[in-house]
Amino acid sequence: MDLTLKTRLEARLGDYLRGPVYQRRDETEIRIEPDSVPDVLRILRDARDLRFEILADLAGVDTGDVMQVVYHLWSPMTTDWLRIIADGIPRDDPRAPSATFLWTGAEWLEREAYDMFGIVFEGNRDLRRIFMPPDYTSFPLRKDFLLPDDAARSTGAGVRQVELGVRPTGANGDAADDIRRAPAS
């Protein structure tokens, strides 16, 4: 647990932080608005006392109420992993700014998050499905996507597979429209 990191982060990112800097074991966690992701990431990477130069991970999270995009960063200046949670992305129309302008490698990670959660990363030049077939319509890692044999977990709900009729608006073209003509709901 790097206590100095907390003060450094608070000094640099004071306005952007939503909630306190949370530290546990070897992890430091901050929460930000999705809109401030580009600014925050740029500061974190380029600030001389932070230098978070390696994007360790980019993950989407569906909490059931909101979507999150979670970044893990590594810096030679600290012994902690830094976790940035871009919180409060609405589930109906999840969109977040892309991190590809800083880390080219975020492109596929964002494609994966889009594929699994439907989070639209604005600024990603190649945001299409990466694992699922192009005519697929659902987003499998969302919490309302239940596995067909998941009766045990959703008591009373039985077998229910959610096929998403509508995509988040502005999600650049799924092939599904052209192949399958998904029924509009």
Binding site: D135, A175, I179
Partner: peptide, 11 residues
């Protein structure tokens, strides 16, 4: 070539 219109500019 995929049998559907390109999904992104890059594609």
């Amino acid at each position: 070539i995929p049998p559907y219109p390109p999904r992104t500019e890059r594609e």
